[in-house]
């Protein structure tokens, strides 16, 4: 049952000073363009998760969603920009 999270929808973002945060477990897929959040965990720590971690999307890192096109999501972390598809994004928990 551990991997069932991240599919929940419909929560409203809570505005803080700079970034929007979410009350409970949210996946990266749910972030809108321009929103920023921190990576908390990977719902499904498979080889793809390990690869994107190696690419710089690591626990605790702040990420910003720059653009969404179709199933592709462009995110920025530090100085790198990474495109992931929504089926990968839904496995990344953000806060």
């Amino acid at each position: 049952m551990r991997y069932r999270f991240g599919h929940s929808r419909g929560r409203t973002p809570v505005e803080t000073d700079t970034i929007k945060t979410y009350p409970s477990r949210t996946s990266l897929k749910e972030l809108q363009v321009g929103e920023a959040a921190h990576i908390v965990d990977f719902f499904n720590p498979d080889e793809i998760a390990r690869k994107i971690e190696a690419m710089g999307l690591r626990k605790g890192k702040k990420i910003t969603v720059l653009q969404k096109l179709g199933r592709g999501i462009l995110i920025k972390t530090n100085n790198s920009r990474i495109v992931i598809t929504s089926d990968v994004a839904k496995n990344i928990e953000v806060k």
């Binding site: 690419m55 100085n79 990474i82 495109v83």
Partner: peptide, 9 residues
């Protein structure tokens, strides 16, 4: 399949 790709500056 999913894809993951880096965009350069």
């Amino acid at each position: 399949s999913h894809f993951v790709m880096e965009l350069p500056p």
